[in-house]
């Protein structure tokens, strides 16, 4: 499970995350939404141990990420928003690198890497350098790397970005089955349709603060809107999308 208590993070005078209280139970897929700069990535970075909170506590799989980072990190997997990887490595080497950092033995690491790469249709390219890979292929490697040590908790930041329709279908199904096995998944995305269909619960944050928590239906009901998209717009301050679009077009025409 994932738990945060009064979690905050400041960058100088800028408050990126403010007093976030969150509990994600095992088996849940939490859709973590917010406009750009709302504090989603900061939250994920704190929860994965990449940066430290300035206040509050956070635990992953029952372990405090600041006090007991190694135990927490043994149990988490992460797909970052930017597909940053050492692309001079081959796909197989990258998975081996991740397996080494998770202290998997060579036999296990090799068999899991083979399975995962086959699942994503990358078996033929496994010894090809990732600098030659397309965006989607790199994303598949990142997802495979996040799963190689069979984590209890998964943090996925735009995991479907760049994937073709078939690969996206596979990933979505894999995530549902992983949740079915009792794993906890925190899913960040801007594609609200996907979030609505996949996630069992949704949390929306804006300006570093949590502004909504519930199922898609509960959020729609509370805001009195017909879709999650409309609810999101209303909650995050964009009330008249039509008028905004018209203004945008008029600016373009003027130019």
């Amino acid at each position: 499970m994932i738990k945060t208590e009064h979690l905050s993070r400041e960058y100088g005078s800028k408050v990126a995350l403010n007093d976030l209280n969150l509990v994600v139970e095992p088996g849940e897929i939490l859709g973590f939404l917010g406009p750009n700069g709302a504090g989603k990535s900061t939250t994920v970075k704190i929860l994965t141990g990449m940066i430290r909170p300035t206040a509050g506590r956070a635990s992953v799989a029952g372990y405090d990420i600041v006090e007991r980072p190694i135990e927490a990190k043994q149990r988490l997997g992460y797909v970052p928003e930017t597909a940053a990887l050492y692309d001079g490595l081959t796909a197989a080497e990258y998975l081996e690198l991740m397996a080494c950092l998770h202290h998997l033995d060579s036999k296990t690491s090799e068999s899991r890497a083979t399975e995962l790469l086959e699942l994503f249709g990358l078996a033929a390219e496994r010894h090809q350098r990732m600098s030659e890979f397309s965006k989607g292929m790199r994303q598949k490697v990142l997802i495979a790397a996040a799963l190689i040590h069979r984590p209890e908790v998964l943090f996925l930041d735009e995991p479907l970005d760049g994937l073709d329709a078939n690969a996206a279908l596979v990933v979505k199904e894999v995530l549902k089955q992983l949740a079915g096995q009792g794993r906890t998944i925190l899913f960040c995305s801007h594609i609200l349709d996907v979030v609505e269909r996949m996630c069992t619960r949704i949390v929306i944050i804006n300006n570093g603060r949590q502004i909504a928590d519930g199922t898609s239906e509960e959020i729609r009901r509370t805001t009195g809107t017909a879709s999650l998209e409309a609810a999101f717009s209303q909650l995050t301050g964009v009330r008249d999308v039509g008028r905004l679009a018209a203004e945008f077009i008029s600016v373009l025409d003027r130019a």
């Binding site: 990449m50 990190k73 988490l76 992460y78 930017t82 050492y86 950092l101 202290h103």
Partner: peptide
């Protein structure tokens, strides 16, 4: 130039 890929050292249980 690939320093952004070093996130792996921060999210993994490596010493």
């Amino acid at each position: 130039e690939s320093f952004r890929a070093s996130w792996i050292f921060f999210v993994s249980p490596a010493d």
